[in-house]
Nucleic acid binder design. Sequence first.
DNA 1: CTGCAAGTAATCCAAATGGATAATATATTT
DNA 2: AAATATATTATCCATTTGGATTACTTGCAG
Lengths: 224, 224
Amino acid sequence: MSIKIAIVDDKFVNRNIIKNKLLAYGHFEIVLMAENGSDFLQKMKTLNPKERPDVALIDLEMPELDGVDTIAAATTLYPNIKYVVLTIFDDEDKIFKAIKAGAFGYLLKDENAENIGDMLWQMHESGAGPISPGIAHKILQLIQNNKLTILKKDTVTEKILFELTDRETEILKLLVKGLAYKEIGQELGISPNTAKKHVINVYQKLHVNSRVQALHLAQEKGLL
Amino acid sequence: MSIKIAIVDDKFVNRNIIKNKLLAYGHFEIVLMAENGSDFLQKMKTLNPKERPDVALIDLEMPELDGVDTIAAATTLYPNIKYVVLTIFDDEDKIFKAIKAGAFGYLLKDENAENIGDMLWQMHESGAGPISPGIAHKILQLIQNNKLTILKKDTVTEKILFELTDRETEILKLLVKGLAYKEIGQELGISPNTAKKHVINVYQKLHVNSRVQALHLAQEKGLL
DNA sequence: CTGCAAGTAATCCAAATGGATAATATATTT
DNA sequence: AAATATATTATCCATTTGGATTACTTGCAG
């Protein structure tokens, strides 16, 4: 099974270079090419779930919708795709923003051909996001220089305040992800009517009456 | 010119495995072996500056003086040496502490022989600290989960992801609180129609199409 | 065996939502 | 003066949501 790749870069030459590198490497299949974030999101809409890429290689500086915003939006719309930055920029600010936006990896374009293929393949094998050595090094420096600091997170008190059933908790999780009745039904293999019934039961137990309120509560009380 | 290496590990077998791996790789010369931090510092004193290692590979869990403390002490005594953690531990806490202590790289022992040699050699060539992919990945996760945060006082903190106008940001805040068009209108003293218009504009800028998705994005990327 | 809780499913209906489009006012910029 | 960005209001319309109610099945506790 080959890995389905999307390439998002505003320069035609870049798109082609990357494409050829990956095709030459084998194991990869290019399923989508876009010249900016808007174009990418647009084209994604036209794909049915089976055709969607596994990995999206995204440049940072692009017109219309830049890489960071693209990743931020795309991670909520298509959370299963691995978004990997592929760019020439290696300044702290861009690195940090891209990661916060949800980048799974960060590769520099000056990596040689095999390296990029290797790292993407490695990602697929190990599940670890690919990061160019120079980038990893910069992040270490940030930590050492106290520009990055760790926040102590207190214990996760698993309190079951509201007595949601297993099924209802499951429903709540999907609800929080933004799914409609229809989609929840599909996801769980039940009728959308049933999904709706569950949702409304959840509302009653949480004493809310809308999705956003439910999400708010779930977030605050950490019951997800 | 070969790279002079020190190996600090409490297990005899480990020391030998590493030694043999590196010798087989070539380019490396083992100038010091120690079984814990105290032992390492002790032996370092006996070396004159020309004989000192370029790189010290240090295990973390050791008796007498553990890896973190060893690195912390050694970086002040011999700041020119690159201290690279070589261990089996990959938990956040150890990683973070080691880096803060001054580790220049962090490698996992389960890397295969060539990889460790490669990465050390690469470090020598590029000047970037060697980091195992899995470790880099963990650090990225930490940043993404807001467990690591950037501290900057000098730079203008523009967390203005997506170019929302002031009004739109205001609207988004209310949206996130679960208010309906009507309520948003009341809150801001505008028509519910206007509120709705703003909401839809926000959706378009965020590339989402529902409240929950917008909330999801706002929450994750911290644009509120 | 019986009853109750949980899960499933459907229907009716009012209200809210999202999308598209158009129009006006008010600043600010060029 | 003209162009641009922002904020405001409105209407049409299809879809979705929330709410109430009824009903069937299954598994488990009394």
